[in-house]
Amino acid sequence: MNSFFEYFADIFRAVKSLLTGMKVTGRYFFSPWEIVTQQYPENRKTLKMYDRFKGEVIMPHNEHNEHHCTGCGICETACPNGTIEVLQAKIDMPDGKKKRIIDKHIYRLGMCTFCGLCIKSCPSDALAWGQEFEHAVFDRSKLTKTLNQPGSSIIKDIVE
């Protein structure tokens, strides 16, 4: 007799547990306002990344097309995977001396692991995180970027 009741108690417990589960999914089904999906390409205009977001490494330039990079190459050694390559150039100073400046600051986005060591190690704070995140391109070579803009120069007061 006992096992007889046990049999029905089993069924009852099972059905109850199943109904509790169904209650959860059923509740979500009837509360569509709780949907969390982001409508990505549609919300592109309003989508704001956090200001610390690591999209890519950039070199901020001011309105005179000037940056802070001295071309010291510290970021190149700090980078764990050879993402950065600093090409230096020599220019003649007015006083006749030669001075090394940055020619090209090459940054290979495809290799970057976003560890932030370059930004942290740069002595003149020339690098920063950019918020751009739509990096997909059709050609891999487009991922190799030159961070200093063409024709840019270093901000004067640092040279002195």
């Binding site: 999914t25 979500y28 569509p32 949907i35 969390v36 999906t37 409508q39």
Partner: peptide, 13 residues
């Protein structure tokens, strides 16, 4: 659509 709504998402759209 039904499974999407049960799973708190919008489904094909």
């Amino acid at each position: 659509k039904v499974c999407a709504f049960m799973q708190n998402r919008v489904g094909p759209n």
